[in-house]
Amino acid sequence: MNWLITQLRKPEWSPYVAGAGLGLVTILALVLSSAHLPAPSLIGASGAYENLVAPAGLAVDPKNTYFNYIMPPGLTWSVWILAGVFLGGLASALLSRTFKWRALPDRQWTEVFGKSVARRWVIVFLAAVLLEYAAGIAGGCTSGLAISGGVVLAPASFIFIAGMFASGIVTAMLLYRKRY
């Protein structure tokens, strides 16, 4: 029991252990979703943002196909998963005493991009818009497509991961230049 508490209080685990844990979560998700939903689903995040924005989408375009039939408004299974992700991050941060209100990331960011909060927030905003739009085109994000597709051995997942790494490496090279 003491061992468990020590582990839960650690700010960071080996990525192998945390990743293996996430593998177990996909198995749990298969069992629970099979029991509670008409069709099973694993994990995901990008779909929840679509359900959440759907009321605004329908206000702009009441006849919109996507927000009427494919991702309608509502507190769906994915929205509750996303709420859980927030709570899980909060619980882990509180247990490890790393919770802190902060407007900028770690030192590596400020060394490369400076201490401007405005610059960080504009880049995060643009990146988030791009990520969510890209997840829409691809059929999911890192969790909903790369992990959930990978564990069932769907080629879609591996194609997505290859694309993600290719452009991620090029983007990092362009942004870091000599520091790459």
Binding site: A138, G139, G163, M164
Partner: peptide, 13 residues
């Protein structure tokens, strides 16, 4: 899947 992945990687990095 590929185009989505390519755009996604840019935002992620």
């Amino acid at each position: 899947n590929l185009v989505g992945g390519l755009l996604f990687g840019v935002g992620m990095a």
